[in-house]
Write a protein that binds this DNA or RNA. Structure first.
Length: 114
DNA sequence: TTTGCGGCTGTAA
DNA sequence: CTTACAGCCGCAA
């Protein structure tokens, strides 16, 4: 039996973040080379428009040798907000994305439209 | 329990 | 450009 006595609502009282995470991985993996997507965009695509921050969380929790193109995910203002901005900028440049001022990316030019 | 912060986003001033 | 407020989730203090 549960520790709590009967005050627990049946079924998932909160949204399935685990499933959401899976969706997120899927969308991130779908970002083509040389293109970028924003946290809010991915959150919206995954069906949770207000979970942009969770997207950043998921990205930061990715394993080191991940195959996921996390570097193609930037903020809605077109800036790299990742603590590891250097590595992300390096990877983006490696696929032809112009990164200005060390952290700026033109969304008008590189934004990915699914 | 509350508070604060983080790979966020929008709107407003 | 900046600050502020409002939303959302997980985690550490």
């Amino acid at each position: 039996m549960s520790k709590k006595s009967g005050s627990e609502p049946p079924g998932p009282a909160r949204p399935d973040l685990d499933a959401l995470r899976q969706q997120l991985w899927q969308w991130v993996n779908a970002i083509p080379e040389g293109r970028v997507a924003t946290y809010g965009q991915l959150a919206k695509l995954a069906g949770a428009p207000a979970m942009s921050r969770f997207v950043g969380r998921v990205m930061s929790e990715l394993p080191k040798g991940t195959q996921l193109p996390w570097h193609r995910v930037i903020s809605g203002s077109g800036a790299i907000t990742n603590p590891n901005v250097t590595e992300q900028a390096r990877r983006l440049r490696a696929e032809g994305v112009l990164v200005s001022n060390g952290r700026r990316v033109s969304l008008a030019r590189y934004a990915w439209e699914p």
